[in-house]
């Protein structure tokens, strides 16, 4: 069995499990990013979230981010798991783990991964408030693709 380094899952994510996928003898530094459901966004109280994904493409795009990182930081090893479905406040939506021999790269590559996820991975978030609900990214003030297409390389 090979370990899946890039996954979309429907059940709770274990930070330890994703981080362990990248721990190895050659790498002294591991950064793990955990994205959790925040209660307040710009003063508005979120009750819960629902994530939807175009799963097949989302996995492909996560793999692509992994390849982009390999090109920029050749010593990096990356694992990303994103959860979909309904999530409660402070539950984990995404875990990104990156190991590198030296720590500067582990931070930089990890931050690159979350920025790219927010640009190109087809996953959508619906916020559910007391007063209603809405798919995020649907708002006019958000124009994440100024070029008409998600950027395929780092801006």
């Amino acid at each position: 069995m090979t370990t899946q380094m890039f996954e979309i899952v429907k059940n709770p994510i274990s930070i330890e499990e994703i981080t362990n996928k990248v721990i190895r003898n050659e790498a002294g530094a591991v950064t793990t990013f955990t994205g959790t459901v925040r209660e307040f966004t710009y003063g508005k109280r979120t009750l819960s979230l629902e994530y939807q994904a175009y799963e097949k493409m989302a996995v492909k795009k996560l793999e692509q981010i992994g390849e982009e990182i390999k090109e920029k930081w050749s010593d990096a090893k990356v694992a990303i798991t994103h959860r979909i479905g309904k999530l409660e406040i402070s539950e984990i939506a995404v875990v990104i783990a990156v190991s590198t021999p030296h720590r500067k790269d582990a931070y930089a590559a990890n931050e690159y991964a979350i920025e790219r996820i927010k640009q190109v991975v087809p996953i959508w978030k619906k916020e559910i408030w007391e007063s209603g609900e809405a798919w995020i990214g649907d708002q006019l003030e958000k124009t994440p693709y100024p070029e008409g297409k998600p950027m395929e390389v780092d801006q």
Binding site: A58, H82, V121, G137
Partner: peptide, 10 residues
């Protein structure tokens, strides 16, 4: 084909 509105994962 798929229509992909602005993504909001992460």
């Amino acid at each position: 084909v798929a229509l992909i509105p602005p993504v909001s994962g992460g």
